[in-house]
Write a protein that binds this DNA or RNA. Sequence first.
DNA 1: AACGCAGTCAACCGCTGTCGA
DNA 2: CTCGACAGCGGTTGACTGCGT
Length: 318
Amino acid sequence: MGHHSCCNQQKVKRGLWSPEEDEKLIKYITTHGYGCWSEVPDKAGLQRCGKSCRLRWINYLRPDIRRGRFSPEEEKLIISLHAVVGNRWAHIASHLPGRTDNEIKNYWNSWIKKKIRKPNTGTSTSSIPQYSNIQIPPTILTQDFNSLTQFEPLENQTMINSNPNDNNSIFPSSPIPLFMFESECGVTMAKDDHELVADVGNLNLVDIWNTNGNQNDHQALSPLSSFVDHNYLPPLVDGLVTMGPVPPGCIGEDCEASGSHECFEKNELSEWVEAQQYPGFYIWDQGLQGQIGGDDLPVSTPPKSNTDNSVDTFPSSL
DNA sequence: AACGCAGTCAACCGCTGTCGA
DNA sequence: CTCGACAGCGGTTGACTGCGT
């Protein structure tokens, strides 16, 4: 494995960085900044390739890096985000200030994997993880609502919902699994659609998934069919966890004026709608710039207490 | 003490997307 | 439109470390 595409010069050094190299790189970047990484090694007096310099700076040397163990909150966020976006480490890292994608990836691979076991479905080719108590939308995994099987219990139940009163569990306030919501921009959900609401603890993450399992219906909702066909989770979630609650009373044209316009700044939401926190869910469609879900639609309200398990969130047929 | 093994994590590899010429 | 340079990303590697035997 001697080849390195960008570092094929004899002089280029590889492997661990020495303190002297770190010092040179820090000194150069802090005084000159970085524009073109390929120029950095020469100008900084380093016998490294630009790519290596960039990696070293981004992952370890930049001043805003946050070291040390992940907090329980960070851990919850990582798990929740990973349940939604899969192995998009850079995306996950963007929600954890000071953490790098590499760090999160390593953390996930070394630590979290131990606590969350993927059930062996044997047939799914999806890269989206399936967690015991985090139920992935069935249409992504199977395209067949009725074929969804209950996930196996965790081998290690210390993390997820082992105790709804345990604030260290991932979803301490809700027995409801994590879902997402799908709707094409401009398509109002039919009233008899199943819509599932999940509340992820204190993370303000509310995902709704239209569980109308009729595959034909989904395919009618172009462009959603593209990911349905490919078992691929669409890039819809940039705003999902960062948005604050839609203010009560903020509906339709009044929305921007009352401050929730931030939801319209999320580029990746163009074809998706958002559900927001209780009390009262408002489901927004960016294309319509208005509420398409809420009081008129059968949107469940998550429990307000840890002991409220009465919310009907999943069809009994499952 | 020596060895094997598993876990950790910094770094590398190869691919993709973007942008400017 | 094409091409090359570059940045960024996710997957993977391998050195290091700690622990058990």
